[in-house]
Design a protein around this nucleic acid. Structure first.
Ligand SMILES: [Zn+2]
Length: 326
DNA sequence: CGGATTTGACCTGCGC
DNA sequence: GCGCAGGTCAAATCCG
């Protein structure tokens, strides 16, 4: 059941990625108002086609045709509904899987933290005169014992998210449900757009950082790189998707990946055709490991935003409907 | 007035 | 050691 659903979903996503022009929102609309629009289209097309006399003659056939179309439409709608339910079930199983995964990751991090070092204790502030106890310099502390075998152990859980925003917001402040404090901005070498550095507003207790930068070739896409995990609830998840639509996020770094780059990036921006990120993610879909990553990715993005579940279900089913009718 | 942002200075790792 | 590039700090500034 699960594997079947997963395969199905993979196919759907691939299809959505390949077909470039229409966005999910379009297919959503199509799905919602399909019956109406079809009913409207048929009468409208009559005066446009040809003379009015022939219209009467053709009306019957058109009527029959429309009837058949309606029948087909009903059938497809039923199928669509069924698929939506299947998708919902699949999402639920994804949620379960994701929670298991989170547990596993937490266990791993605990295991990592406990034997190696005691870390800086967040409760007792050991001030040697400097109040600032930063966390990023701790990476050197972590590897002081194992400097040489500094392998593919990635210090923090890095996830990458592709967020589509309007070109209007120049501040790079991505509202993802958490409160961020901007602490820097730099221009990077191979990107004219500046990169913004954010820290979580719960500064010492939550050492999560993120970097936000526009994509090189598609300036309407912001690439947000999250570093670490929040140890608190988001202040407001109501406004989480305001002004921007979340497209996907990938937890990365828990599994050793050799030589081909440790960062697995997956984006659901089906309108991107030529970006490096899309090119990177596509060949990785062929390997079974990438499938695993995809599962994690979808599960995480789904569990983080329950509303996204419904949206995704509707969108994918809409996409399926559109491809079916074509 | 307090918190967030801006922005140039400063730090650090890395390649030559 | 030097220069570069990415990352961070913190004083100044902005804003509600
Ligand atoms: Zn946080």
């Amino acid at each position: 059941m699960n594997i079947l659903d997963l395969d199905l979903c993979l196919k759907i996503e691939k299809k959505a990625m390949n077909s470039s022009s229409s966005s999910w929102v379009d297919s959503l609309d199509l799905n919602a108002s399909s019956t109406k629009s079809l009913q409207l289209e048929t009468p409208v097309s009559h005066p446009n086609t040809s003379n009015s006399l022939i219209v009467f003659g053709r009306k019957l056939s058109v009527k029959e045709e429309s009837g058949a179309l309606m029948e087909e439409l009903n059938r497809v709608n039923a199928e669509n509904k069924k698929l939506t339910e299947m998708l919902k079930a699949m999402c639920e199983s994804y949620n379960a899987l994701q929670s298991q995964l989170v547990d596993l990751m937490n266990k791993n991090t605990e295991k990592e933290l406990s034997p190696t070092k005691k870390r800086k204790s967040e409760t007792s502030n050991n001030n040697n005169g400097n109040i600032i106890g930063n966390s990023e310099s701790s990476s050197t502390d972590e590897e002081e014992s194992c400097k040489k075998p500094r392998e593919e152990i990635i210090k923090a859980k890095i996830s990458r998210a592709y967020v589509r925003t309007e070109l209007s917001d120049t501040s790079l402040v991505v509202k993802d449900g958490y409160q961020w404090r901007k602490y820097g901005q730099k221009v990077t070498r191979d990107n004219p757009c500046p990169r913004a550095y954010f820290k979580c507003s719960f500064a010492p207790s939550c050492p999560v950082k993120k970097k936000v930068q526009r994509s090189v070739d598609d300036q309407s896409v912001l690439v947000a790189t999250y570093e670490g995990e929040h140890n608190h609830l988001p202040p407001s998840q109501i406004e989480a998707t305001s002004g921007s639509s979340r497209l996907g996020s990938v937890p990365v770094g828990s599994t050793p990946v050799k030589s081909s780059g440790p960062t697995i990036t997956l984006d659901l921006t089906n309108s991107i055709k030529s970006s490096d990120e899309a090119r990177n993610s596509k060949p990785k879909l062929d390997s079974p490991e990438a499938t695993q990553y995809l599962v994690e990715h979808m599960a995480s993005s789904l569990t983080k935003d329950p509303n996204f579940t419904a949206a995704l279900a509707a969108a994918i089913s809409g996409r399926m409907f559109s491809t079916n009718s074509n």
